[in-house]
Lab assay of single mutants.
Amino acid sequence: MLEGKVKWFNSEKGFGFIEVEGQDDVFVHFSAIQGEGFKTLEEGQAVSFEIVEGNRGPQAANVTKEA
């Protein structure tokens, strides 16, 4: 699992990017966010995740919000 911070997330469109120190930003789709209820992320929020190869390159999977 990697750790990063949410760079930005558009809850209307359901996607955004996660910043990872020393690496390129990683695309995140709302469907990759773990948990119940409305799936969104806040700018600057700490998250842990895995990287998988998507249709358009690397993207986040199994995203969990850090306490």
Rank of each mutant, 00 (worst) to 15 (best):
N10Y: 04
V28F: 13
V52K: 13
L41S: 01
R56S: 07
S11W: 07
A67R: 11
E36Q: 12
V28P: 01
K7G: 04
F27L: 05
F17R: 05
I33H: 03
E50V: 10
N55V: 15
E36L: 11
Q23K: 13
G35C: 11
Q59W: 08
E19D: 07
V63I: 05
G4M: 02
G14S: 03
A32D: 10
L41P: 02
A61E: 08
I51P: 05
Q59A: 12
G14K: 05
L2V: 13
E3G: 09
A46K: 14
E19N: 12
S31Y: 02
S11D: 15
E50W: 07
L2D: 04
F49M: 06
G16F: 00
L2Q: 08
N62Q: 11
V63W: 00
F17T: 06
K13D: 06
E43T: 15
G22I: 00
V47W: 00
E19Y: 06
A32Y: 03
T40S: 13
F27N: 02
F17H: 04
K7N: 04
H29E: 07
G35M: 10
E36D: 14
V20S: 09
F49C: 04
E66Q: 15
D24S: 11
D25M: 03
E3I: 15
I18S: 01
N10F: 03
K13E: 08
E21Y: 12
G35I: 05
E12S: 15
F17L: 07
F49Y: 04
A32N: 10
D24P: 14
Q34A: 13
N55C: 12
E12Q: 12
D25G: 03
A32P: 01
I51Q: 09
K65W: 10
T64A: 12
F15C: 06
V26Y: 04
V20E: 03
G4K: 01
L2T: 14
I18M: 01
E3T: 11
T64F: 13
S31V: 01
T40C: 13
A60K: 00
W8N: 07
E21W: 08
T40L: 07
D24E: 12
V63F: 01
L2W: 13
Q59E: 11
A67E: 08
V63M: 02
K13F: 07
F30K: 12
T64P: 02
F38C: 11
K5L: 08
T40E: 10
N10E: 06
T64L: 14
G37N: 10
Q23H: 09
P58A: 12
P58G: 06
P58C: 09
G37R: 07
Q59R: 15
V28N: 03
V20R: 12
A46G: 12
Q45M: 10
E53Q: 11
N55T: 14
H29Q: 04
G57P: 04
G14H: 03
F17I: 08
L2K: 15
F17G: 03
G16I: 00
G57S: 05
E3D: 14
A60H: 00
F17S: 06
A32E: 09
M1Q: 05
I51L: 14
V47D: 00
E21F: 08
E43L: 09
V47C: 08
M1I: 15
F17M: 08
G54I: 04
K7T: 04
E36T: 12
G57C: 05
N55A: 15
G16H: 02
E19P: 00
Q59C: 12
V20Q: 11
G44H: 07
M1S: 07
L2C: 11
V20K: 06
F49G: 01
D25R: 03
K5Y: 11
G14P: 00
A32S: 12
E3M: 13
S31I: 02
G16R: 01
G35Q: 10
G54C: 07
S48V: 11
K13W: 07
A46V: 13
H29N: 04
K7P: 00
F17A: 06
S11K: 15
P58K: 14
V26C: 09
I51E: 04
Q23V: 08
K7D: 02
A61L: 09
L41D: 02
Q59K: 15
E21V: 12
Q45G: 07
S31A: 06
G44R: 07
D24L: 07
E53S: 12
F30L: 07
E21P: 13
E36R: 13
P58Q: 10
G22H: 14
F30Q: 12
A32T: 05
F15T: 06
K7W: 00
E66H: 15
F9E: 00
I51M: 11
E66P: 14
Q45V: 07
E66S: 15
V63Q: 00
W8Y: 10
F17W: 08
K7R: 10
G16Y: 01
E19Q: 09
V20I: 14
W8L: 05
V6S: 01
E19C: 13
R56L: 08
T64S: 14
I18K: 01
E43C: 15
E50N: 13
I33W: 02
F38W: 12
G16L: 01
A46P: 12
I33K: 03
T64Y: 12
F9H: 01
K65Q: 11
Q45N: 11
G4E: 01
A32C: 06
A61V: 10
V47L: 04
E43N: 15
N10K: 07
K5N: 08
V20M: 12
V20G: 04
F30I: 09
E21Q: 15
A60M: 01
E36K: 15
A60F: 00
G35D: 15
E50Y: 08
D25E: 07
V26W: 02
Q59Y: 14
G44W: 02
G35P: 04
E43A: 14
F15H: 06
V63N: 00
N55H: 14
V26F: 04
G22R: 09
S48R: 15
F30C: 10
V20T: 11
H29P: 05
F38L: 10
Q23W: 07
E66L: 15
G37K: 09
T40P: 04
G35E: 15
V47P: 00
F49A: 00
Q23S: 13
V20Y: 09
E21M: 08
K7H: 03
D25N: 07
F15M: 07
K65C: 13
G54H: 05
L41H: 00
R56K: 13
E43P: 14
V52L: 10
E66W: 15
M1T: 06
V26R: 02
V26E: 02
G44S: 07
V47N: 02
N55S: 13
E36V: 11
S11V: 11
K39E: 06
Q34P: 05
Q59M: 15
I18G: 01
E21D: 10
A61Q: 10
S31D: 07
E53R: 14
G57V: 04
A67H: 10
F17Q: 05
M1V: 10
T64I: 15
W8P: 02
I51H: 04
G54P: 02
V28R: 02
M1L: 08
G57N: 05
I18C: 00
E3H: 08
N10C: 11
G4W: 01
E3K: 11
V28Y: 03
K65T: 13
E50F: 09
F9Q: 02
Q45L: 05
A60I: 01
V47Q: 01
E36S: 13
V28Q: 02
N10A: 09
V52P: 02
K39S: 08
R56Y: 06
S48K: 14
I33C: 06
G22L: 04
S31K: 08
Q23L: 10
N62A: 08
S31R: 07
E19W: 05
V28M: 06
A46L: 14
A67M: 15
V28A: 04
I33D: 04
F17V: 07
E50M: 12
T40W: 12
F27K: 04
V63G: 01
I51C: 10
V26I: 12
K39F: 04
V20W: 06
A61G: 11
N10S: 15
P58N: 09
F9M: 03
R56W: 06
E12R: 15
P58E: 06
Q34S: 13
T40R: 12
E12H: 15
S11L: 10
A60N: 01
Q23M: 12
S48E: 12
D24G: 10
F30M: 09
R56E: 08
K39D: 07
G35T: 11
E19G: 13
Q34H: 11
V47R: 01
F27G: 03
G44Q: 07
D24T: 10
E42P: 06
S11R: 12
K65H: 08
A32M: 07
E53M: 15
N10Q: 05
S31G: 06
Q34N: 14
G22A: 09
Q34G: 08
A60P: 01
N62D: 05
N55D: 15
V28C: 15
T64V: 15
F49S: 01
A46M: 14
F17P: 00
N10P: 01
I51S: 04
H29C: 02
K65P: 13
L2A: 10
K65I: 12
Q34V: 13
G16V: 01
E12P: 13
F17N: 03
A46W: 11
I18V: 06
V63S: 01
Q23C: 12
F38N: 09
E50H: 13
D24H: 12
Q59T: 09
K13C: 06
K39V: 08
F15D: 03
L41R: 00
G54Q: 03
G22W: 04
E21A: 15
K7A: 10
F38R: 11
E43Q: 15
F38Q: 10
D24W: 04
L41M: 07
V6N: 03
A32L: 02
M1Y: 11
V20L: 13
E42N: 14
